[in-house]
Design a protein around this nucleic acid. Structure first.
Lengths: 250, 250
DNA sequence: GTCTATAGCCCGATAGAC
DNA sequence: GTCTATCGGGCTATAGAC
């Protein structure tokens, strides 16, 4: 199964100015109602029949726009990632400190995801399985994953402490994985306002920033090489389209 | 829902010498057939009806012993963990080097899990959700998780490089989480014989061992304190029964 | 306590007529 | 796009045999 449904608008750099067709409106209505129901009843307890009824369409039509329940989840991922990245831009601009940027960006992710806290865990479960086309390391996910890594490239870009070019090449990927981990912690966190996840974030960001600084010191060559080798190993274990071109970009 | 089914034998320090009742044999037959079917058809494609038919019992009886499909997964976890831990003992005895022990123990986990590689991912998905009583941080999972952490306590115990008492208190938990991560990588790894996951393991173990050594050096007090604080934060975010008693136990 | 048989609910997903 | 009908599968309920 592949996850790109037929009438799915490619939300890339394509023309978003065209006025929506009737079908698109229907599609969005179904999606919106599904998210509401997921939030109020949870993912598992929300049935496709409920979604269709709520959106005032027939079940079969729901399946026309979203060929499976998973496709709704995938659409959520895309929308969420897109919104999260947009909201991160001013946060990155606000400070050059790596630690502040990292905390800020992940906090932004928490804030963006807050309305969905109740069902994010269930989505994650659907997505965690290597068998699922939704898992973050699958090829269906490539686009979303790449935009996430790209976000952390901007976090690293021009930050303090300064990072060497070789580190700057691997670090975005590592930070993206850190971001995923924080997401997982946040989902599990039922403390008020997810304060525990936030405390964890602050402590981790401090440690990461310290390690990055340390890895640039002259005496840390062995550590740096080991870390880079490790990151490279992880990255190449994943069906990434290609290692980031160290060419004319930036 | 709680996961301890009624006729489930408590495999603790309880008398395992008693001869199995007829019901226990049936239970084990159902379980064994389920695992075979999972391995050959995958988790999702194996139906409860198939399992019952294969074990030559009625579906309702299957549900008597395993009130849900998830209960089969939970039984698998318990058995797997138990076998994995048993097989790890000689590995720990074989070397005092932390790096060698770490590689050896995780390799043992890979070897123990090898027969289930095809469906381990699906089980993991069922288990990853915070909503699932199967997730590794849930209270149902406490016993299994504790035995895992205890295993890594033995890995750390008496190892070289020497670790200070305060590090030795947190390190087993961190290594257990590392073990979980490696499991996740291994599941995703479809290279021949999961060679990529093994390469990752060797590289990670080297780095971890280096970091442990470094953290014990006099100049690394700040790094060590930060790492300990982080570990403690993570650990206390989890419904652990209690922080490990620093009392009379070895 | 161990087990069979049957009947059925609910839900994800599909087929095909209109 | 709409609709009905249907399937397969997780799960439940009940009645009862031994």
């Amino acid at each position: 199964m592949t996850l790109s449904a037929a009438p799915e608008p490619q939300t890339g750099a394509a023309p978003a100015t065209r006025q929506p067709t009737k079908g698109q409106l229907t599609r969005e209505r179904i999606y919106a109602r599904a998210m509401e129901l997921f939030a109020s009843n949870g993912y598992e307890k929300t049935t496709m029949r409920m979604i269709a009824e709520s959106a005032q369409v027939n079940v079969a039509l729901s399946y026309h726009y979203f060929p499976s329940k998973e496709h709704l989840v995938f659409a959520f991922y895309r929308n969420f990632t897109s919104e999260f990245i947009d909201r991160s831009a001013p946060v990155i601009a606000a400070s050059a400190r790596l630690e502040a940027r990292l905390v800020g960006v992940v906090e932004t992710m928490f804030a963006t995801a807050a309305p969905y806290h109740s069902f994010a865990g269930s989505l994650f479960a659907t997505a965690a399985s290597p068998a699922s086309p939704l898992n973050p390391f699958s090829s269906d996910f490539t686009e979303i994953r790449d935009s996430g890594i790209e976000l952390f490239r901007r976090v690293v870009d021009g930050c303090t402490p300064r990072v060497s070019a070789e580190v700057a090449e691997e670090l975005p990927f590592l930070l993206w994985m850190f971001d995923l981990s924080m997401m997982y912690c946040w989902m599990h966190d039922h403390s008020a306002h997810q304060e525990k996840a936030r405390a964890l974030l602050r402590q981790s960001a401090r440690l990461i920033s310290g390690l990055v600084r340390f890895s640039s010191s002259p005496g840390a060559g062995s550590f740096r090489r080991q870390l880079l080798a490790l990151s490279s190993l992880i990255r190449t274990s994943i069906p990434l389209p290609a290692p980031p071109p160290a060419g004319p970009a930036t």
